[in-house]
Deep mutational scan, measured.
Amino acid sequence: MSGNGNAAATAEENSPKMRVIRVGTRKSQLARIQTDSVVATLKASYPGLQFEIIAMSTTGDKILDTALSKIGEKSLFTKELEHALEKNEVDLVVHSLKDLPTVLPPGFTIGAICKRENPHDAVVFHPKFVGKTLETLPEKSVVGTSSLRRAAQLQRKFPHLEFRSIRGNLNTRLRKLDEQQEFSAIILATAGLQRMGWHNRVGQILHPEECMYAVGQGALGVEVRAKDQDILDLVGVLHDPETLLRCIAERAFLRHLEGGCSVPVAVHTAMKDGQLYLTGGVWSLDGSDSIQETMQATIHVPAQHEDGPEDDPQLVGITARNIPRGPQLAAQNLGISLANLLLSKGAKNILDVARQLNDAH
Results as ranks from 00 to 15, higher is better:
Val301Pro: 01
Gly218Gln: 01
Gln304Leu: 05
Pro208Met: 12
Ser69Trp: 09
Val124Arg: 03
Pro241Trp: 14
Thr294Val: 11
Pro208Gln: 10
Asp178Gln: 05
Ile291Gln: 13
Leu276Gly: 05
Lys272Ser: 13
Lys176Asn: 06
His120Trp: 13
Leu338Ser: 11
Arg201Asp: 12
Ala122Ile: 04
Leu68Met: 14
Ala270Trp: 07
His199Leu: 09
Ser96Phe: 00
Asp307Thr: 06
Phe183Cys: 08
Asn340Ile: 15
Arg150Met: 06
Ser57Asn: 01
His300Ala: 02
Glu258Met: 02
Gly192Ser: 13
Ala185Val: 10
Asn200Ser: 09
Arg225Thr: 07
Arg156Lys: 13
Lys79Trp: 12
Gln275Thr: 00
Met212Val: 04
Pro159Phe: 07
Lys87Asp: 13
Phe77Asn: 02
Tyr213Arg: 00
Ala303Val: 06
Glu73Val: 08
Gly335Trp: 03
Thr279Pro: 03
Pro138Arg: 09
His239Arg: 03
Phe108Met: 02
Glu306Asp: 07
Val93Ala: 11
Gln328His: 12
Leu245Lys: 04
Lys115Pro: 13
Phe253Val: 04
Asp230Gly: 07
Asp228Ala: 12
Thr279Ser: 09
Tyr277Cys: 08
Leu148Arg: 09
Asn340Glu: 00
Gly111Arg: 03
Val90Trp: 05
Lys128Gln: 05
Val94Ala: 05
His305Thr: 00
Gln314Leu: 13
Leu97Met: 07
Lys345Asp: 05
Ile63Leu: 13
Gly111Tyr: 02
Asp61Val: 02
Leu238Val: 07
Leu315Asp: 04
Lys157Ser: 11
Ser288Asn: 08
Pro106Met: 06
His300Lys: 14
Arg116Trp: 04
Phe158Tyr: 14
Val282Thr: 07
Asp65Gln: 07
Ala347Trp: 00
Gly144His: 01
Lys128Trp: 11
Leu245Trp: 10
Gln50Leu: 13
Leu68Phe: 06
Leu85Gly: 01
Ala331Asp: 07
Glu258Cys: 15
Ile350Pro: 00
Gly260Trp: 05
Gly48Cys: 11
Pro313Ser: 14
Gly197Ser: 12
Asp61Ser: 03
Gly216Cys: 13
Glu179Phe: 07
Leu137Tyr: 05
Asp228Tyr: 03
Asn349Thr: 12
His83Tyr: 14
Glu52Asp: 12
Gly308Trp: 11
Lys128Arg: 08
Cys247Phe: 07
Lys132Cys: 11
Asp240Leu: 01
Asp99Cys: 00
Asp228Val: 04
Gln314Val: 11
Val316Ile: 10
Glu82Val: 06
Ala112Lys: 00
Ala270Asn: 03
Leu174Thr: 07
Glu209Thr: 03
His95Gln: 08
Arg156Glu: 11
Ser165Thr: 14
Ala44His: 09
Met295Gly: 14
Leu285Ala: 13
Gly60Trp: 09
Val93Ile: 14
Leu343Thr: 10
Thr172Trp: 05
Leu42Asp: 01
Leu285Trp: 08
Ala152Ile: 13
Asp230Glu: 11
Ala354Ile: 00
Gln181Lys: 10
Lys74Gly: 09
Val202Cys: 12
Gly144Gln: 00
Asn88Leu: 12
Leu276Pro: 03
Ala252Leu: 03
Thr298His: 09
Asn333Thr: 00
Leu49Glu: 00
Leu68Asn: 06
His199Met: 13
Gly317Ile: 09
Pro101Tyr: 01
Gly308Asp: 13
Lys115Cys: 08
Phe77Cys: 03
Lys70His: 10
Glu86Ala: 10
Asp312Thr: 01
